[in-house]
């Protein structure tokens, strides 16, 4: 078997470093010894693939998981999962999780003094279609305080986990909302060195997918690592 074509190394400055002092939790969790750089093998370029037997269509609607509707501003989140080359990634598994409209997660250790919503769990999953498109219906999450520094507030955000074609494309990220005044104070957002890559974490208002008299849409495209046409050194 010929060696697999490797995925490109992450483009410089697009990814945060492990150790980023403004985000305090990195201090005891970021590796301190040099990372080893092996060639990519069949073990890394492959990875779990998912199909319609793994995900139910209703998992894409976070507003319909309980008896009643959750409180908050309804929103549609759409976008495409693409490789750096522009090639769409179909059947990518996209998982999301988020706080409710009041900024509270349904998690035992979230002790923020904001109400839980009995009609909102805050997680969903979907597969991309043949053009790499995904779509969720949910509510806009609220900002919430955390103890990273004095009077620290996380800007409203939604967590996303994406499985592409192999483990080399695995990505977990967060998207934010346009015009949020908390963004420049958020160490997670600010940990991305490249200004364009940072800006790309902000979803765009999407008038085309906004549903009249029902829900505002935001667009968030996700770009995974791609491969060059020929193997390096071939």
């Amino acid at each position: 078997m010929t060696d697999p074509t490797p995925y490109r190394r992450p483009y410089r400055q697009t990814q945060p470093e492990y150790f980023y002092p403004p985000y305090r939790s990195t201090a005891k969790r970021a590796p301190t010894r040099p990372l080893v750089m092996p060639p990519q093998t069949i073990s890394e370029v492959t990875g779990p693939l998912f199909g319609h037997e793994d995900v139910k269509p209703e998992e894409a609607d976070l507003t319909a998981q309980h008896a009643g509707e959750p409180l908050g501003e309804r929103m549609i989140v759409t976008g495409r999962v693409l490789e750096e080359t522009g090639r769409p990634v179909c059947n990518a598994l996209v998982e999301i999780w988020q706080a409710n409209a009041a900024g509270r997660y349904r998690h035992a250790t979230d002790n923020h003094d904001a109400p839980l919503d009995p009609n909102f769990t805050g997680c969903g999953r979907v597969l991309t279609d043949g053009d790499g498109r995904y779509r969720f219906k949910t509510i806009k999450p609220g900002a919430y305080p955390w103890r990273n520094h004095y009077n620290a507030w996380r800007p409203a955000h939604v967590h996303l986990s994406i499985f592409g074609r192999g483990f080399m494309q695995r990505l977990v990220t967060q998207f934010y909302f346009p015009g949020d005044p908390l963004l420049p104070y958020d160490p997670m957002f600010m940990s991305v060195p490249d200004e364009r890559a940072r800006h790309n974490l902000i979803a765009e208002f999407d008038w085309e997918h906004t549903i009249p008299e029902h829900a505002i849409a935001y667009r968030f495209d996700i770009v995974l690592r791609g491969r060059d046409a020929t193997p390096m050194g071939a």
Binding site: Q15, G86, W97, C123, H159, A197
Partner: peptide, 23 residues
Amino acid sequence: MSLLLTAAQTVGPFVAISFEHTQ
């Protein structure tokens, strides 16, 4: 054509609300 790679962000402290039932 080359698109800019999406930046990774932490899973945060509440990832279990999503990943616990998909273990």
